[in-house]
Design a protein around this nucleic acid. Structure first.
Length: 882
RNA sequence: GGAGGAUUAGCUCAGAUGGUUAGAGUGCUCGCUUGACAUGCGAGAGGUCACUGGUUCGAUUCCAGUAUUCUCCACCA
């Protein structure tokens, strides 16, 4: 017996306490356990600079739901947490912080910089972890990893060396995406395209030894300083005679050849293209085909270099203006058009990317992509929803080599060493003593670090001890589900897949469970620049974690974006409160003097049997939904079952019995209440872990915690099919009575008599059994079940017709005959519509011939029912002289 | 240029291997301090399931096309 429980649920009084308890009892921890099947997930490691946002909240809520569900289903669940060093993002923040002290990286040097970075990591790395805990995440914190942990760094080196030895990593000079602000190369995936208004300038180039000109169009005139050819299409008659001749590069005066290449489209622009192999990826390819010189005209910070002649030192955009001015003076500018085009920008700092030729390390992608495509094609690894595999394929099938070197300090330093004497490249685990070839000791390590994603690609196995052959790997790998937003399929998911296959010879996970973005109330992306982000921690503070989790998961469709709204959280909070109060009701009625241990099923009443049967069905359905990852549907069903069926019906139905201290079926009622509520708590626990734990701890059971209790199963002795149907009939009567009363404006305090007329013997018995419920929920002073209505005067009664029965309520002076007529006519119209539909169907020969018998029978049943009701209605119409 | 979503109640969204009187939350209307809960209870109004075809006995659901809209990928200088 519990009293003095607050009327309102206060998450703050519960969440911290409960989380601490779980943690201290070691419920989050997973160990190799050969008696159980494993279920493994690795967290998408948040950046150490990161702060929890709604995306994290959704992502981790989904993972936690799966983890808790599987744990209850008896799996050894490992949800492995950790953080990512996020090279560019973190380095940028540290540089920014140093700028406030008027310091630069170069001034303090690599070693001191890294010291600062590690301090940063210590300080901020823990913050996001604490925030994940606030979400209720049941991660195994004893296994927390960081992408630059010693073990993970070993894995990175090992992978680099493996790939290098297999010739899948190479160093070469190619066009890469250069960010002039971050001062590093970035991969293709890290470039974001933005549509911008620019100009298309047409520039005349003089043909050598002639008075002719050739006109080219360009969006980036500043790169012309690095032109080393002009290209035309070989089949283009306009320019055929010019192929092989030379043009004079304006301003610079250099002679450049006019070449023919298929790459040029005859119909675009002038049909002639300036070729700048050092500053454009397409031009680079053309350059290779024609053996053209590559002239880089910019510095790393996007200012012009010495090859830019008089523009040296100018920023690229200033240089552009100056060049345009000079071309105008020279009369070589023939046209300026406004031109909308996509400009590549850095995904971290939004600076316009400069394609630039540079010596970098690359991963050869084609051979790695092939098996990674196959494994999804053959269904061994599944995307959920399936449509995301198409996105994956299109990326994987068109993949370019991956530029993995970064000109950053924070990250895994590339394990490549250069002999300064004989120039040999040595790729090795440790700093070599001497050069293998010439024996020189004059050796330097590559200055660059690796792309952050290079290490996170290994996350599913590096975190489990690879390259060591650990028991953990054997037991927990491959992982089961990877939960992530669709926005990082390319960055991360795809790279984990080919890495897993290449290094483990096994997929990294069986399912990729993809979710959408959390948008703001108006459907916009939440972003810093818009300032429309909602801090999940604020929401938790105000409404509690369970409410936040609930609002992010109820009714969502896999892979679709969803909108955050305060209204939704509020209604979730109301649901939590509902759970709280339903439990309060149950607990308040617990009676120390009544044992619910040995309940005889035969003594359960109709309502008991109905709710137990409904619970069985819900258990089955929700379990099916969970297995299919239909979390949103599962939760929706639980919401409705709990609120509508359990609270609004069962609890109301049980009250009469419970309040009657002499009733000898109170034990049965308490048993059913405890049993149902207990199972509801279990079913909801994965979604709302805190409140369910708190409530569960007060209920009667033998578990230490709901978290480690077992998932509900159907109780086959509770499959009361008949009673379920009977109860539905009684509920139908109750609804009809309430409807009449509401429409007739009968005040609550005014009890009325209810007459139920049915010729059907079975129904008769059911209603007699249900009298007590109809009285209570239909606010009736007396319920009479009759075979004939002859014995009562129905003229002053309001009525309703439900299938085989009629209901009459004498309202005496309260009856409003016009309203009654209105009600009846409305019902008549409705029935006519339905009858017409069902008659039409059943009189259709083809329907009878071709539809399945089951459907036909169902329709016939309906027809019978409607006809019956309709006849009674006509009788009623006649009797009222309408 | 290519691909993929979305389009269902005023708003935000679910939904069904094709057959239900198409659902929820929220908002709205009416009535309620009903011995858990006003963060509540009861009743109600509100939908041509974007449009046009096709398949089918039957389509809101499957197929094709159209429109509107969002997103991703590629990129022609």
């Amino acid at each position: 017996m519990i009293d003095n429980i607050d009327k309102k649920y206060e998450p703050k009084n519960v969440e911290e306490k409960v989380y601490k308890m779980w943690n201290e009892k070691g419920f989050f921890h997973a160990e190799v356990n050969n008696e159980k099947e494993s279920f493994t997930m690795v967290i998408p490691p948040p950046n150490i600079t990161g702060q929890l946002h709604m995306g994290h909240a959704l992502d981790n809520t989904l993972q936690d739901i799966l983890a808790r569900y599987k744990r209850m289903r008896g799996f050894e669940v490992l949800w492995l947490p950790g953080t990512d060093h996020a090279s560019i993002a973190t380095e940028a923040k540290i540089v920014e912080a140093m700028a406030k002290e008027k310091l630069t990286k170069e001034e303090i040097g690599r070693e001191a910089f890294l010291k600062r970075a590690w301090e940063w990591k210590e300080f901020y790395g823990g913050r996001i972890i604490d925030q994940l805990k606030k979400l209720g995440s049941s991660c195994d914190w004893e296994r927390e990893r960081f992408t630059m942990d010693e073990g993970l760094s070993e894995a990175v080196k090992k992978v680099f060396i493996n790939l290098y030895e297999k010739d899948l990593i190479y160093r070469g000079e190619r066009i890469i995406n250069w960010c002039p602000k971050c001062l590093t190369s970035i991969s293709d995936a890290e470039v974001e395209y933005e549509e911008k208004n620019g100009n298309l300038w047409s520039v005349k180039y003089h043909i050598k030894d002639s008075n002719e000109f050739i006109t080219v169009a360009t969006t980036r005139p500043e790169t012309m300083l690095g032109d080393t050819a002009i290209a035309v299409n070989p089949t283009d008659d306009k320019y055929k005679n010019l192929i092989g001749k030379y043009a004079i590069l304006p301003i610079v005066g250099r002679e450049i050849p006019i070449i023919a290449d298929d790459y040029v489209e005859k119909d675009f622009g002038t049909g002639a293209v300036k070729i700048t192999p050092a500053h454009d990826p397409n031009d680079f390819e053309v350059g290779l085909r024609h053996n053209l010189e590559q002239i880089k005209v910019m510095n790393d910070n996007a200012t012009m270099n010495e090859f830019a002649g008089k523009y040296k030192g100018f920023d690229r955009y200033i240089a552009r203006k100056e060049i345009i001015k000079d071309l105008e003076k020279l009369n070589l500018l023939t046209e300026i058009k406004v031109h909308k085009h996509n400009v590549g920008t850095c995904y971290r700092c939004s600076t316009v990317i400069e394609p630039i030729i540079s010596k970098q390390w690359f991963v050869k992608m084609k051979p790695l992509a092939k098996p990674a495509i196959d494994i999804v094609k053959n269904g061994e690894l599944k995307f959920l929803p399936e449509r995301f595999s198409k996105i994956y394929f299109s990326w994987m099938e068109n993949i370019q080599d991956w530029c993995i070197s970064r000109q950053l300090w924070w990250g895994h330093r590339i394990p490549a060493y250069y002999c300064m004497d004989c120039k040999k490249i040595i790729v090795k685990n440790n700093f070599p003593d001497k050069c293998d070839d010439c024996g020189s000791k004059n050796i330097k390590q590559d200055e660059d670090t690796l792309d952050t994603w290079f290490s996170s690609a290994l996350w599913p196995f590096s975190t489990l001890g690879w390259p060591e052959k650990t028991k953990d790997l054997e037991y927990f790998y491959p992982t089961d589900v990877l939960v992530t937003g669709y926005d990082i399929i390319f960055f991360w998911v795809a790279r984990m897949i080919f890495s897993g296959i290449e290094h483990m010879n096994e997929k990294p996970f069986k399912h990729v469970f993809v979710h959408g973005l959390v948008r703001d109330e108006q459907g916009r992306k939440m972003s810093k620049s818009l300032g429309n982000g909602i801090d999940p921690l604020d929401v938790i503070e105000k409404y509690g974690t369970d409410s936040l989790r609930f609002s992010l998961t109820k009714g969502i469709a896999t892979g679709n974006d969803l909108r955050y709204s305060d209204k939704k959280v509020e209604s979730s909070r109301n649901f939590a409160n509902k759970l709280w109060n339903a439990s309060r009701f149950v607990l308040m009625n617990f009676d120390e003097n009544i044992s619910i241990d040995n309940i005889n099923i035969d003594r359960l009443n109709l309502a008991d049997k109905w709710i137990l049967r409904r619970l069985n069905i819900i258990i089955q359905e929700v379990t099916d939904n969970m297995e299919k990852f239909e979390l949103g549907i599962a939760l929706e069903k639980l919401y409705e079952f709990t609120w509508d069926e359990f609270c609004d019906w069962y609890i109301e139905l049980v009250k009469t019995r419970l309040y009657d201290k002499d009733n000898d079926l109170r034990a049965e009622a308490l048993y059913v209440l405890n049993y149902t509520l207990k199972n509801i708590m279990k079913l909801i626990h994965p979604f709302m872990p805190f409140i369910t734990e708190e409530i569960y701890s007060h209920l009667i059971h033998d578990d230490k915690s709901i978290m480690i209790s077992s998932w509900p199963e159907i109780n086959s002795s509770f499959n009361f099919e008949k009673e379920e149907k009977d109860m539905l009939k009684i509920m139908e009567v109750i609804k009809a009575v309430r409807n009449i009363r509401a429409e007739m404006n009968v005040p609550f305090s005014k009890r009325a008599k209810v007459f139920i007329i049915t010729k059907n013997k079975k129904d008769n018995d059911i209603f007699i059994e249900g009298k007590i419920f109809i009285e209570k929920l239909g606010y009736a002073m007396e319920v009479n079940v009759l075979n004939e209505k002859n014995s009562i005067n129905i003229n002053n009664m309001a009525s309703a017709i439900i299938s085989d029965s009629e209901i009459f309520i004498p309202l005496e002076d309260l009856i409003d005959i016009d309203k009654e007529i209105e009600r009846i006519m409305k019902e008549k119209k409705n029935l006519e519509k339905e009858l017409k539909r069902v008659d039409g169907k059943l009189s259709n020969e083809n329907f009878i011939k071709k539809a399945p018998q089951k459907v036909i029978n169902e329709e016939k049943e309906k027809q019978k029912k409607y006809k019956n009701m309709y006849n009674k209605l006509l009788e009623r119409v006649r009797s009222l002289n309408i």
